[in-house]
Amino acid sequence: MEKTIPELVESFLNGDEKAFAELVKRYRKKIYSIAYQVLHNHLDADEVVQETFVRVYNKRQELKDVKYFTSFILRVATNYAIDLLRKRKGQKKITSDTAALPGYIQLDLSQRVATPSDNLENKRLMEEILRAFDELPYKQRLTAILHDIEGYSKAEIAKTFNCPEATVRSNLHIARKKLKKILKQRLKQKE
């Protein structure tokens, strides 16, 4: 039978290298996905994933309770992603660069979203939403990515950012409000 995450973490903390390898397998895509959505390119996402696991390995003594492994790894990953984002921002203006967006937007959006049914329309809308994402402050952006896109709970996110759940709620509320504003303008244009 497959081991659960807490079981794997327990083994990993007891020095089992195989358990660590299994944890890498279970979390690598999740971390990649978050990093990609923050940094918008494969190379940076790849760097975040590698550094995250190396740091988690080296800092494993800091993990007091196996229950909180997900928040622990998310904290390491989001901190690294934010650092990298700050670095990249100094190198070039990414917020105004819309050319970087369309490449990773999948065209099958309409298959899961009922309205509006038009593929191109959905794609454009998604582009605008993603651009708006980039304008949000880091914590709000990551909160929205972790909660609404990746599906982590508010409790997990609160543990990740070491803040009360109320802060997660308000960050999410502000982020959604800004994103909805764009949606509103879009839908108005269509009418």
């Binding site: 996905s33 990609y36 999948q106 979203v113 009922a114 998604m126 609404d148 896109i149 909805k180």
Partner: peptide
Amino acid sequence: ERTKYLKELLKQKLVNDP
């Protein structure tokens, strides 16, 4: 309606698997 729609939209995976 807008909040629901936004949540639906964001559920899409915007990342291609390498």
